[in-house]
Design a protein around this nucleic acid. Sequence first.
DNA 1: TTGAAAGCGCTAACAA
DNA 2: TTGTTAGCGCTTTCAA
Lengths: 350, 350
Amino acid sequence: MAVTIYDVARYAGVGIGTVSRAMNNSPRIKPETKARIQKAIRELKYRPHALARGLALQKTGLVAILLPVFTGYFYIELLKAIQQEISQHDYDLVLYSITRSDRTGPCLRRILEERRVDGVLVLSLQIPDAVVQLFRRSGLPVVLADGMHEKLDSFFVENEQGAFEAASYLIAMGHSRIGMIDARLSSPPAHSRLIGFRRALAAHHIQWDPGRLVISDTVSEKDGFNREAGYEAMKHLLALKNNRPTGVFISSDIQAAGAVQAVREAGLGIPDDMAIVGFDDIELAEYLGLTTMHQPLSEMGGMAVRRLIERIENPDLPVLRRGFDTRLVVRQSCGGNRTGASQSLNGARS
Amino acid sequence: MAVTIYDVARYAGVGIGTVSRAMNNSPRIKPETKARIQKAIRELKYRPHALARGLALQKTGLVAILLPVFTGYFYIELLKAIQQEISQHDYDLVLYSITRSDRTGPCLRRILEERRVDGVLVLSLQIPDAVVQLFRRSGLPVVLADGMHEKLDSFFVENEQGAFEAASYLIAMGHSRIGMIDARLSSPPAHSRLIGFRRALAAHHIQWDPGRLVISDTVSEKDGFNREAGYEAMKHLLALKNNRPTGVFISSDIQAAGAVQAVREAGLGIPDDMAIVGFDDIELAEYLGLTTMHQPLSEMGGMAVRRLIERIENPDLPVLRRGFDTRLVVRQSCGGNRTGASQSLNGARS
DNA sequence: TTGAAAGCGCTAACAA
DNA sequence: TTGTTAGCGCTTTCAA
């Protein structure tokens, strides 16, 4: 069997209580016995059993992270930042990936009831109000990243403002027939981006033609933020013929990648026949030469973690809400800048 | 406080032992009391405290997963497959990401001593022999994916054979001045790929020119498998002037992406001036039109998980070793197939 | 400053 | 078939 606190106590010739005190640097211990115990610990290579300690302390050293089944760089980058920050605080992450959004509630309930973690980080998912209540009553801290709830610490991207800037950029580049490809509006980011987009058009007195909005979920089998959806959605826009937009704001880079392909296959050029602004600034965007809105994911992830730790240590903190500004990254897909290294938008020279 | 087994017992008018039996479907319980208890459990929304249960059972329901700080699709895809499979077996994953390879041993030691998990999945990392011994003695199961150790269940990609086929393809496409860009050879996959590559040249009686091998670590600050390294490495090859290769095998797609960029910037065309075969078949490869070796990552991840579960349930299984074959995916970067959708290799039409 | 003992919430052996 | 109790390995009173 593994070495326990009893082994250490016997080895050092003290009681287990004293060993415990030596480890949790209690002041109520004589320095020399403490030293003797530490020596014993080292020699026996003792380390407390995490479960036993957790049970006694009502504290596990684990944090749950809930995210939509992750595909794409968005969650990678967020996860990377989160993992890095959390390990600096001596916590470990337990991964819960959600395949269907209606599993969010049940999964959180389970996490709450099992009491295996000291806190929960929720990415992008919406939490049912009933579950939020449950958590508040239980005192198990929850922090949202890329999400927003009135009663929970929330860290989010300023999607509306980002979309506003994206659309404004298209307008500044001289476009007036402007379309948008979005995902299902039940997704808060998708919804906000549409609002921001329309606000930009309105601000510049540009007529809004609902026919130029395609919700990519409606044209694809899978839901929303993926390449196929973007591909199909762009086909719809292209089918508008003479009435088709000359510039399109697309609510994610991954959809934009599909859209780029659709434009190419139609024998059209980017940005000449169709200008595109994406959203996310995933690594792929660089390769595609996609002009897009960058999201400060690692800052957001880092802050979310720090807040969660704070709240674990002090549950009575007021609810914090913090938005992160996006930033326009100009590449080639709108013709704004042709000097970049990546120039792969228009297909082979063949 | 949360509801405990005592609450359930009192509510149902039985002892806690009976409640425990009702939950762990012991045969030694009368069906009707069992039903009454289950009703109580439902009404009180009781669920056992994971730590307490784990402490009593010496079983946590958690599995550790160790991986190099994950960037890129390789680990995403593997992780996705693993997460999916493990949740089907009612385990959860604890994430340990390793930033420096010399932290692998200490991290595993900690995992072992803390006894927080029932098993460990190690991706791509090499485990010091001393640590392997420790695990074997302790009985905590370890399974390797994308790695190999004589004494541990190992699931790995047939890197050498894959590299052999990649190089053979270049040869079949008519190249005879063939180069390779690899990562530090201390990485087993990188090493195997070099072996396979050289074996292919030898098999076709092609002269091996060591000047056409670039270890990308030596030309880049970061280590090995990344875009910058590939970019710099390709610059080295291009600098060989007339002696430069006409075809290059690159040990990862992400390096290949950098290499593609270097070729482009030199004003050269792919595949006409430089043919490229990558390795990994990450999503990016499709966008780049990169011909590459596909790795069956989700199969490998799934099998690794199933084996780990098996071994948790039965520690005395013999060591299992299983290789997974790669598969050549022909796109445009070698000129083998120009009918694909993506044709972005040669830059803008400008 | 220290040791002994209770308790964290559960399972399983032992009695009844 | 059930209730009682002794651990699982730790922390933290409470006495000494």
